[in-house]
Design a protein around this nucleic acid. Structure first.
Lengths: 156, 156
DNA sequence: ATCACTTGTAACCATTATAGTTACAGGATT
DNA sequence: AATCCTGTAACTATAATGGTTACAAGTGAT
């Protein structure tokens, strides 16, 4: 199965916090941008908080990103919300018959190769900072359609 | 969630077919090595067959690997049994509010980055052939424990 | 032609993760 | 005190996985 959408939502939330850093966004407002339930947002923000990427306080709106977004990578975010996958992105069938030459050794053999593939993916994520993501968002938005529909003011 | 164990089982099956290429293994025998149900094995072998990695015939035991295992990579196997993940390893929340600057652009932005990370992982898998896996299995097995317990003859 | 054996597949089940929802205790601000 | 917010528990629907039973249909030997 695919990696959950928590990762993409988490990046969305962090980007929004950065762009609106002078406002105090409630989980309700953020949920309006993500278009989901506010509990889903609070759940993910709870993970980001636990991972030390943002600072939240019970009862008070407006989470604060804990360091410059040029120092937060996609890998940081990924690991914060996909904790289980840190150990093993790939599941390995772990009941193979030890009396069989293949069954006895396959697990260890695959472990090595799978870890290497996983690390390659993680390294790519580590090479992208939230800074770059936010820049991408802003650059894309600067595209001016031939027939303008909304102004930036009308958007959040 | 993690990538399913079908991948590891598929590699197991292919390795077993290679090592036992002079015998005609039934799905029942293979299931004995993997230590699972024979239907699970047939299901996965069905995918390998459909992907053109092995040739099976209804009613007759003994699947045949369709090309030299030096020309089959882990990526080939992965794509054969994790068809869904070929498009998108990462799920992206696709209901973001288009009236928000972030919501409007986040999907496309992440798409680019996620694809790159996915490709990096796939490239690692593409760099490993079944030949290497089988070699690994055999090399590991040649380790001689200080107190020998079973001989290779006793194993499958 | 029959018999034993096999594959391929449908159908079903238990388990698990996800994402959404309601509800509410408790902190914070005015 | 009143209001707004977070954090979290509990519940739901949905979907994927892996295992299981069952069986139709193909194969090959006798």
């Amino acid at each position: 199965m695919a990696i959950s959408s928590r990762f993409s939502v988490a990046v969305h939330i962090l980007s929004l916090l950065e762009i609106s850093k002078n406002e105090r966004l409630t989980s309700e407002i953020i949920a309006g941008s993500v278009n989901t339930n506010s509990v889903v947002v609070r759940r993910i923000m709870g993970m980001l908080n636990k991972a030390g990427l943002i600072n939240t306080s019970p009862g008070v709106a407006g989470a604060i990103i804990s360091r410059p977004i040029s120092q937060i990578t996609l890998l940081d975010v990924y690991l914060a919300v996909e904790v289980d996958l840190q150990d093993h992105l790939f599941s390995i069938h772990d009941k193979a018959n030890p009396n069989c030459l293949v069954g006895k050794n396959i697990q260890h053999t695959l472990e090595q190769r799978f870890t290497q593939a996983q690390r390659a993916m993680e390294n790519e994520l580590a090479n992208v900072t939230l800074d770059q993501i936010v820049s991408d968002l802003l650059v894309q938005d600067s595209f001016i359609p031939s027939v303008p529909t909304t102004t930036n003011k009308e958007q959040l």
